[in-house]
Design a protein around this nucleic acid. Sequence first.
DNA 1: TGATTTGTCCTACAATGTGATAGTAATGGA
DNA 2: TCCATTACTATCACATTGTAGGACAAATCA
Lengths: 108, 108
Amino acid sequence: MKKSKDYIGEFEELVLLAIVGVGQGAYGVSIHEAIEDASNRSISTGALYTTLSRLEDKGLVRSWEGEPTSERGGRVKRYYKVEAAGKKLLMEAEASRRKLRGLKSATI
Amino acid sequence: MKKSKDYIGEFEELVLLAIVGVGQGAYGVSIHEAIEDASNRSISTGALYTTLSRLEDKGLVRSWEGEPTSERGGRVKRYYKVEAAGKKLLMEAEASRRKLRGLKSATI
DNA sequence: TGATTTGTCCTACAATGTGATAGTAATGGA
DNA sequence: TCCATTACTATCACATTGTAGGACAAATCA
C-alpha cells in the first residue's frame, strides 16, 4: 500500500462508487457491469483490473478471494470493498464540486 | 478544436465547474482561486493553463482577450467561458455518478 | 480430453495532471 | 527614462491515470 495522493482520478472515482453501490459481492464482473450501465460507455476489463489494482496499492480498496462456485466456469472471484480512506476521498471529491457549483454564478 | 472523448478527467471537471461558477469575468487567476478554495489543495498555475488550453482544443471552452486594465501590472487577461459541449459533459459525469450512488447498497 | 465458460491479470501506450520556470506587458518611482 | 515590481499567461518535461487487447487460469460439460 503506497501513500496515496489527496485526490482520485475520474475513472478511479467511478470504480470506487461502483464497488460501494454493488455492495456485498462486488467483484470484477459485477463492478464492470455497474460502471457500463451507469456511464453508457464501454469499459475494457483490462482498464478495470488495472485500476482496481492501483486503488489497492494506494490502500483505497481491499480485496480477497472467494470460493469457487459450482457454475460452469465458476472460477474463483476476487471480491472488493472500499476502505475508509477511499470513502473519505469520494466525499472530498464530491464536496469540491459542490462548492464550485455553489458559487453565485453557477447554473449547472 | 479536436474531437473530444466522451468524458472529462478529474481536474478538467474542476476547471469547467470553476469557470461556470465564477461566471462573467472568469480568467486564469480567478479560476485558479476558485479551484484552490473549493478543493483545499494547491494548484500550480502551469497545471491550470495547460488544462485550459487542452479544454479549448477539445472545444469545451472558448477564450478571448480582454482589455488591459489600469492597475499596476494590469496585463491583458484571457477570459474563459464553457461551451455547450462542455456543459453537456459536466452533466453526464454527474449523471453517471448519481446512477452509481443510486444503486441499492450505496451508502455514500 | 478438449471445447466452452467465467474470471483475473499483464503489457504497452495514450491522455491527463503537475511543478518548475520562463516570458510579456503594464505601472510607479528614483 | 529606466528598472524593479506587479499581474498574468505560456511552455516543458515528467509523473500519474486511463485504456485496449490479449494472455492466462480454473472449473464444467459432453
